[in-house]
Design a protein around this nucleic acid. Structure first.
Ligand SMILES: [Mn+2]
Ligand SMILES: [Mn+2]
Ligand SMILES: [Zn+2]
Ligand SMILES: [Zn+2]
Lengths: 167, 167
DNA sequence: TACGGGGTGAAAATGATTACCATGTGCTAC
DNA sequence: GTAGCACATGGTAATCATTTTCACCCCGTA
């Protein structure tokens, strides 16, 4: 039962390690670029493995976290609280509206909210204010289909938010 | 090993059961009224038991859900995704700004956001649009205390969001 | 070749929330 | 009142996304 008492691992996290483009990290990044909608860590992992990429779920989570911290992805939470990631197309953060039926997502203009948030922060005397703004609803196609089929709600058209509303 | 095959339980959910003011439900409601800030189901449960109220955690969750569905409480999610509830003071929904250090919460004016959300819904052609808007930051007292103590962050002043900024 | 900081990932731990389901209770029809 | 049933309750087990652990791998450098 003698515990392992070797030297002193001293495995400190390393405040900010240099970003090494490993096979796995590259794969995650590519996978994200290949999708237009939001994807969960687990879905991403499955997709990667399905594509023949060998990678641990842990690594997917870690990578997504890092990308989030460095602001290279946008994150939202679905109603169960699960985190969904999306590669951030342009610079600066964005807000989206997501269809609860098919997952379709589209970026929305939110300058008004940004200004409102700043104003509130000042008024209330709060610092380092962060905001969470998420919109969800039922997109037009889904609504139509819903009317047609008076029965079960239309099954997710594709994985999660693969289609786009832009056009 | 013969299973219980009595009549036919027919335990259907019951679309909308009448609200019976049971001992437990009353206790939960009271506990919520006694707090000004946001509280998690688990905290509420602990508090209740501490007050001598015998109630199951399951029931607390169920009651909170019901209150949420009927719009009698506001719900936010902290950064871990945990749901925090707060008795809704006035009618109509509200948005809050919460201090990440001490939990202090205060309602904020968000008409601008409401209008923005409606506008986006129409522009994007989405129906049944719901929105989540949450602000978090560091309140003035906490910021001050933080400057003073250059060490560990100020420990939560009290449970979770008990103090208020209104005044 | 030895050393050391990153990285990885299988496996186990967490922890909030939910599902089950046997048992209790408020109401109402008789 | 009392029976009967829908509604409620709560202990316990199950879910399930995310986090921790920690032994091991990779690779550039001394
Ligand atoms: Mn924003
Ligand atoms: Mn609102
Ligand atoms: Zn849709
Ligand atoms: Zn504070």
């Amino acid at each position: 039962m003698t515990r392992d008492l070797r030297p002193h691992p001293d495995t400190r996290p390393a405040a900010s390690a240099p970003w090494r483009p490993t096979r796995q990290r590259t794969a995650v990044l590519n996978a994200l670029h290949g999708r237009t909608g939001f994807t969960s860590a687990q879905e991403l992992h499955e997709a990667l493995e399905a594509d023949g990429v060998t990678i641990g779920l842990t690594t997917v989570y870690r990578t997504l976290h890092a990308l989030d911290r460095s602001g290279r992805v946008d994150v939202v939470r679905d109603r169960t609280g699960e985190r969904l990631y999306r590669h951030r197309p342009t610079d600066g953060h964005r807000h989206y509206i997501v269809c609860r039926a098919c997952g379709l997502s589209a970026a929305v203009e939110a300058e008004a909210v940004e200004r409102w948030a700043d104003e509130v922060a000042e008024t209330m005397g709060f610092a380092e204010v962060e905001h969470t703004v998420e919109l969800s609803g039922v997109c037009d196609p889904c609504r139509t289909e819903h009317r047609r089929t008076a029965a079960e709600p239309p099954p997710p058209r594709s994985g999660r938010g693969d289609r786009r509303a832009d056009s």
